[in-house]
């Protein structure tokens, strides 16, 4: 059986989850199977230098654009699927993967399971474990092959990066598909980190939707100041305009690894955990004892966050003599 591991890279940086897709495929491959990495982008060299854990690499090389519209990625992937007849296509849960996975499943008519954490091979089918309801429920699913899976970043340990033999690399030209595509990239906005760079912060106090309203952010901000910490927020908090975008932690925000991460009223959805589960010390306060944030927390408390902020602030203030 052939496995296609979908990989990505932007601005000459190979995404770490690419190596996870290859590792996931490798973990399922048996004697005689083949793991084929598929890459679309400008950094063909980076892909060749990194994806040695695959048996083969198909590179659709772009020369102009750094960001490949998912439409184009999916179109090129379809051709590869037709040519290779894989048993399984592994797509990362990324901004690109979100558009690619179900598109491919529709065009092939194949089954799709998203948000997958575990995969087991059982003859002609797979059993996979996927997350639902913001990580509160795990679904064990049976998946007849061939199929498409969308895999959570972090679910599989990265394959060893290393070069792949030149004879195992097949290069195709992505430009015709990019030029002929209906979706055109017109701008990339990279944030200015001059104001705040959470990725280098040593201490972070993160507020989630549980904070309730904009005015209450100040309570958490005062606590953060006392702790010498940066204030951060989950997506809904930033979406509501209560904190600037650069202070968002998670999948579409920053990936942080501070010494202290204090999460107040954050449920711990997979997209949030992706940005902070590697922190050295995670303390979570959430009134819901089943909140998934407790699965990654080193210390968890189920009290009201406002009570905790008030009590902790009092003690820190007293301790510092202020």
């Amino acid at each position: 059986m052939k496995f296609i591991a979908c990989t990505e890279g932007h601005s000459s940086k190979i995404e770490a989850f690419s190596l996870e897709m290859i590792a996931a495929a490798r973990s399922l491959a048996q004697a005689g199977d083949e793991v084929v990495a598929f890459f679309v982008g400008r950094d063909a060299e980076g892909a060749s230098a990194s994806f040695g854990a695959a048996d083969r690499l198909i590179v659709a090389r772009a020369t102009r654009s750094d960001v490949i519209p998912a439409e184009t990625y999916a179109l090129l992937l379809r051709d590869v699927i037709t040519a290779e007849s894989p048993g399984l296509v592994l797509v990362p849960y990324s901004a690109n993967g979100l558009d690619v996975a179900a598109d491919i499943a529709t065009r092939t008519g194949w089954p799709l399971v998203s948000y997958v954490n575990e995969i087991k091979r059982r003859g002609e089918s797979l059993t996979v474990v996927a997350q639902m309801y913001g990580g509160k429920i795990l679904a064990e699913c049976e998946v007849p092959l061939p199929a498409v899976l969308m895999i959570n970043p972090g679910a599989f340990a990265e394959a060893m990066p290393g070069p792949i033999a030149a004879v195992s690399v097949q290069t195709i030209d992505a430009e015709p598909a990019l030029t002929g595509g209906k979706v055109k990239m017109v701008a990339i906005d990279v944030p200015d980190y001059a104001d705040v760079d959470l990725t280098t912060a040593e201490r972070i106090v993160c507020v989630g939707r549980g904070i309730g309203d904009e005015a209450s952010i100040d309570l958490a901000r005062n606590l953060a100041t006392m702790l010498g910490a940066e204030i951060a927020g989950s997506r809904p908090v930033v979406d509501n305009g209560w904190l600037p975008k650069l202070r968002q932690v998670g999948k579409s925000g920053q990936k942080v690894k501070p010494k202290l991460y204090l999460a107040l009223g954050v449920s711990g959805a997979p997209e949030h955990l992706e940005g902070m589960s590697q922190a050295d010390l995670i303390i979570a306060v959430n009134t819901d004892p089943k909140a998934p944030i407790f699965n990654v927390a080193h210390y968890g408390a189920t009290c009201d966050l406002f009570d905790l902020v008030a009590n902790l602030s009092d003690r820190l203030r007293a301790g510092s003599g202020r």
Binding site: K136, L138, K290, A297
Partner: peptide, 16 residues
């Protein structure tokens, strides 16, 4: 694909 079973994640891990 089909759901065979649903379950709650094992709570807590090593956290206190």
């Amino acid at each position: 694909a089909e759901i065979i079973t649903l379950r709650l994640p094992v709570q807590g891990g090593s956290g206190e």
